[in-house]
Simulated scan of single mutants.
Amino acid sequence: MQRLPIRPLAGLAAIGLLALTGCGTDTGAAAHRAAPGGADTTIRAHEVMQLTKVHEATGMTLLEGPTFDADGNLLVVDVTAPPGGPKVLRVDVRRKTSRQVHTDDRGAYTSAQFSPYDGRIYLTDFSHGDIVSLAPDGGDPRVFFSGEVEGARMNPDDLAFDREGNLYVSDSRGMSEGEATGRVVRIDREGKDATVLADGLEAPNGISFDTEYRGLWISELTQNRVSYLRLGGKAGVAPLHSAIRVDGGIAQTDSIAVDADGNLYQALHGRPAMVVYDQNGERLATVEVPARAAEGLESATNVAITPGGTKAYMTVSGPAGGYLYAFDALAEGVRQSNGG
């Protein structure tokens, strides 16, 4: 199997290719080891199962957007699945089985989440700028939103829902050109009104509400920075500010999840790991794939924490294939740690 180089575009390593063609030793759920200084803990994740292999047609596999359905099954998207291949999979994590629930001939889906308004699955199509929805069983595909937002088409990456079912999207527009033209876009739950809440961002990727729905955490991948956008100020938002600087080395900031205690799980592209911070920016833990299993794995793109429980499942990908790894989260899962 040909080894693919680490891409500079976190969580969307395959999208550039798509755009040109058409974007240890521990076996327990989590083994904790105090890091020097005692402030940061290492959490060893363990392999649950391999979901995908590198696709011959695209030369990659990239798993993203894990989200639990009402039956406790995990939905996962494969960003680089070729036309006709499994683009959305439903995984029985207990039986360690998976099956295709959706495919099509064009989508490059980078996230998935269930709407609290209509219960449908919502997918972001990075390459075509669309938001697509599916019935809970994966059928009845619909284009929920398409077209320009304030004069420019989106490159939607991740999404988050508020309590009423309105969508908040990280728009990575300008990423391939290296321009700071990324945005945060709000789309009402009917898909009729889209508004830019923040712009001038550098490849925004992860997006998640805080536990009180007062603001949004947003990762800017080319800056290795997590910014915070408070909602409810003048004109509906307050100024966005840099909240956390992520020392990622060769890795870059990918998707974000938030647990019941408000802790942020920041996924990394370029390294099969996640870093965990509290809401005040203190680094609490690093979640890692054991070293002997990490060869051929380049990214931990996202995580879903079992709603009401602490078992966490992160999507990990690279030349070795696409995998699910599990670990014990620091607090219980909520809507903001279940998809996006």
Rank of each mutant, 00 (worst) to 15 (best):
Q100C: 13
S98F: 14
R142D: 13
G191K: 03
A135D: 10
G147D: 15
R95A: 15
S111L: 04
L167K: 05
V185A: 02
E148H: 08
L134K: 05
P86Q: 12
L197V: 04
I207G: 02
V169I: 14
G200T: 07
A198G: 04
V143H: 04
F114T: 03
L201R: 01
F144W: 02
Y117Q: 08
R153G: 15
D157T: 08
S172A: 15
S127C: 10
G165I: 00
G129L: 01
V185G: 02
G174H: 03
D158K: 04
D125N: 08
R90G: 09
Q100K: 11
L197A: 00
Y117E: 11
T124P: 01
D193E: 14
R189S: 05
S127M: 10
D104I: 05
I131G: 03
E190F: 15
E202W: 08
S133L: 07
G85I: 06
Y109I: 04
V143D: 11
A108N: 06
G206Q: 01
E179Y: 11
I121K: 00
P156Y: 06
D162F: 02
A112C: 13
D105A: 13
S172T: 01
A194H: 03
L123R: 02
V101E: 00
H128P: 03
R90W: 10
D193C: 12
V132M: 10
V143Q: 07
A135M: 06
G200S: 14
S98W: 08
G174I: 10
G174W: 05
Y109M: 04
E177W: 13
R142W: 05
I187G: 03
D157I: 05
H128Q: 09
D210S: 07
D210E: 04
G182V: 02
D193N: 13
G138T: 01
G138R: 02
N205R: 08
R173L: 15
E148F: 03
E202L: 15
V93Q: 00
S98K: 11
R189N: 07
G138I: 04
M154P: 04
D137M: 05
